[in-house]
Design a protein around this nucleic acid. Structure first.
Length: 227
DNA sequence: GCATTAACCACAG
DNA sequence: CTGTGGTTAATGC
């Protein structure tokens, strides 16, 4: 399970890590462990002590929060991406969980080393800030769509997101259950089922179990906009 | 009022 | 875990 990674030769270097010099890469290498995750494995959990930054090299993950109203999926993302910056930098306990939705490979980095890079290496820090800014802007968009779009619009948006930003294909196998899909776009699993089969009947998408093919992208974009 | 939307419940593959 | 039907509550003409 554990590998000693060779950070210098890493194919998945983050835009920040590209600015580390060889000394710093050596430091990173000594503090870093690489771990493989299977679908469904928890990468880190809400409520437990956080002492590492996790860098997802490859794979797809969900960020989720357990609330009184149930489970909410706050974000779905694929590597390469940092997973734990907001919940590790200035928080004692994880404020959210991250779970692998598919096979994933991640490096666990000690917070002290990461913090040292941010303090000592301005270019590294700059890239981290850029990533955090992008995330915040994306969340603004998600928030708007959640409060002002109906369920059909949100499902259309999610399908386009999966196709364009996660799988980069028009046909993809969605590893989320219908229930998780509902948790993600803030609706019930029944509504997800119903709307997906409605899109299927209308010839906008083609469903074969977990496999989804986008047939009429234009129509889906229209529903995303007007829904 | 009437239509639309979506949640909740129940039941069946 | 999913899909579908019935029911109900809220919201907007």
């Amino acid at each position: 399970m554990f590998n000693s990674p060779a950070c210098i030769n890493c194919q998945f270097k983050s835009s920040a890590t590209k600015f580390l010099n060889n000394d710093e890469l050596g430091t990173l290498e000594r503090s870093c462990a690489e771990i493989e995750f299977k679908k469904g494995d928890i990468i880190f959990k809400q409520g437990v002590l956080s002492s590492n930054i996790v860098y997802l090299k490859s794979g797809i993950v969900k960020f989720h929060i357990e609330e009184i109203g149930g489970e909410k999926i706050v974000k779905i993302a694929k590597g390469p991406i940092y997973l734990g910056i907001p919940t590790t930098f200035d928080e004692k306990y994880n404020r959210y969980s991250v779970t692998a939705v598919d096979k994933a490979s991640a490096c666990i980095i000690g917070i002290d080393v990461f913090r040292q890079f941010v303090q000592d290496n301005g270019k590294f820090a700059y890239e981290i800030i850029v990533e955090l800014c992008r995330n915040e802007i994306n969340l603004f968009g998600k928030y708007i769509s959640r409060v002002q779009k109906n369920a059909r619009g949100r499902i259309a948006e999610a399908l386009l997101f999966f196709s364009e930003e996660i799988y980069n294909k028009t046909t993809f196998k969605l590893t989320l259950t219908r229930n998780e899909f509902g948790d993600y776009i803030d609706t019930s699993r029944e509504s997800v089922s119903r709307i997906l089969s409605e899109f299927n009947i209308d010839g906008i998408i083609k469903i074969d179990g977990k496999k989804i093919e986008i047939i009429n992208k234009k129509q889906l974009e229209l529903i995303r906009k007007t829904g």
